[in-house]
Each structure stands twice: as structure tokens, then as C-alpha cells.
Design a protein around this nucleic acid. Structure first.
Lengths: 155, 155
DNA sequence: GCTTGTTAGTTACAAAAACAACCATTACCA
DNA sequence: TGGTAATGGTTGTTTTTGTAACTAACAAGC
């Protein structure tokens, strides 16, 4: 790597959004290979699947709100997951615009496999950091990302 | 938000790659509006510009390696930055495949403006965290993202 | 009931990214 | 040398995404 040093009082390598991107890129590229190679899933599809696996029945809008995923992305992911028979759609009895989404047994199996893999992957990723560092990192990231503190938040 | 609770021992909201993504997404979407509205830059273009502003002369490959940006993305970003006269290309004397890239005065001006904006943005983003938290966050992120410790690293 | 406004979700089209194939050069090495 | 591999960079094609506009259903006020 050839380059001329050119120091000014700003270092891209310490610029937070840059660091966040690099770290996010690195960690999701690695994990992406797994769900893509193993099940042919796209990033959004994986995210939708995980939401359903974790929370059970949800509507498309619920998923979008929770995961900050745009509704068109959710819509297309749901469509593809449906085609692969990883989820089924159940029309709501009370509102005909709404469909409840729920994983099929096949979808559940994929979810469990990926969830376990994710857990192992995270463990590997965090090897070498102390429990304190990890806890603090996650706390800070949650605040930065605007993630609700815990499982439930009202609309 | 309607949902059935379905607790199993894994929480997507605590899954590190997920948190990283949310935080990265949040922070770069906000900043994206600035460089897009103000200069019509694309994300990759902004990143390339910043690299050049920070390190001075570099080749396309250098930028790709440093920033983990695929070479086709770099190539197209360089092309567009060239069209806008934000950078100029200088053929290498020793290797006719290589071109050195360097910002024009116009490019420098854009860089300085965006850099300063970025600095203010980061300050706002990190308001409410202690200096210690920030330092530790960045240290951890650098390690996760495989970012070289400081400005210079040999090939 | 009927008009107006919202909400859930899909679809169409344009912009951007991923992927692969491709020159032109330079490096390696028998 | 000369032939093969590797490198720097660009271009073409296919996937994904982003943005807007749209349909269908519900809600609210009069």
C-alpha cells in the first residue's frame, strides 16, 4: 500500500460512522455467506425470518417497524420466503388488509439452525473482549441505532 | 405493535452483527442526506473522496484495500468524481497500469467542508456518552472491523 | 350512508450494487 | 527469452434496492 502521509486534524479511521460501517460490513459479510450458501437467503429474508422465529406470529408492518425495514423490502422478502415454504400467510379475521405471518416447520428448522450458528459466530467474534466490554459495546450500539431497550415497546 | 411473546434463549436485538448494522445504518443514512443534498455525492463517492482527502495521493487499489470497497465500485466512483473535477488522474511513471489519484482544489474544498460537517455530526452523535465510553467503543470497533491501528500499515 | 383521510400491502420503474468477464500491463520462472 | 500467471483497472449484465404510485380495506365525521 503506497501512500503519502498527509496529516490533518481529522482521521477517517476514528470517524464513528466509518468505523461502524467497517465493523458492520465485516461481521455481516461473514455471516451472510452462511445463510446464503446454506439456504440461498438474502439479507432481508434472513432478517424477516429471524423476526418471525423470535416473536412468532407477526404482520409485515410489525416486522418493518421492529427492524426498521422498509415495507417494500419486507413485502418482497415475505413473498420469497413464502415461495420457499418457509412461512405461511394467514388472513386476519378482523381486518382484511392484514395477514399474519408464521413460520412453517421448515422455516422453524432453518431459523433454529441459523440462530444457533449465529450464536456460535457471535461468540467467536467476541472472543478476546471482556464481558464488560461486550456489555458496554452493545449498550452503546443500541442507543446509537435507536433500538428499543428490550423486547417490548408500544407503538 | 401486535405480537405474541415467544421467548427462546436468543435475542436478535442483542445479536452483535444486527446491532452493528442498525447503528451503522442509522448513522450513515443521516450523514448521507448531507453529502447528497449538498454535493450530489453517492456513498461510495464520498468514501473515496475522504480517503483521498485524508491520505493524499493514492491509487484506486489502495483505496479499495483500505476501505474494503470493491474495485468496480471504486472505479465508477473515481470516474464520476473525475467528471465533476473533484479529482485528477496522474499516470504512474513506473507502471503504466497504475494511475495516481489526487484531489483538485475543488475536491479539497468539498472534502474540507464535509470533513468539518462530519466532525460536528459525530460530536452530536456522541453527546451523552463519556469520553471513556467513546474511546472504548472506537477501539472495539476498530478491532472488529479489522481496521489497522493507525494511519499507516505496510502492504 | 357518503366523503375524506389512513393504513396494509403490492407493484412499476429508476438507481445502485454485485458478479463476472474482459484488456493491458507487469511479474515470475523454467 | 517466452510462456503463464498475477495485477490494475474498466465494462457489461444481472440482482437488489429505493422511491413513488397504486389498490383495497378500514376509520371517522358529518
Amino acid at each position: 500500500m503506497t501512500e503519502t502521509a498527509k496529516i490533518e486534524g481529522f482521521d477517517l479511521l476514528r470517524f464513528l460512522p466509518y468505523l461502524l460501517n467497517q465493523a458492520a460490513e465485516e461481521s455481516s459479510l461473514t455471516f451472510q455467506k452462511i445463510y446464503k450458501d446454506r439456504y440461498g437467503l438474502l439479507r432481508t429474508e434472513w432478517r424477516v425470518l429471524f423476526h418471525l422465529g423470535m416473536f412468532g406470529e407477526m404482520t409485515a408492518t410489525d416486522i418493518g417497524t421492529r427492524g426498521k425495514i422498509h415495507k417494500t423490502k419486507v413485502s418482497r422478502a415475505v413473498y420469497r420466503l413464502g415461495q420457499r415454504r418457509y412461512l405461511k400467510r394467514m388472513p386476519s379475521e378482523t381486518d382484511r388488509r392484514v395477514e399474519w405471518l408464521v413460520l412453517t416447520p421448515a422455516g422453524e428448522a432453518v431459523y433454529r439452525d441459523l440462530r444457533d450458528t449465529a450464536e456460535r459466530y457471535e461468540t467467536a467474534l467476541l472472543e478476546g473482549f471482556t464481558a464488560d466490554e461486550v456489555a458496554q459495546l452493545k449498550r452503546v450500539l443500541r442507543r446509537l441505532g435507536g433500538t428499543p431497550d428490550s423486547g417490548n415497546s408500544p407503538k
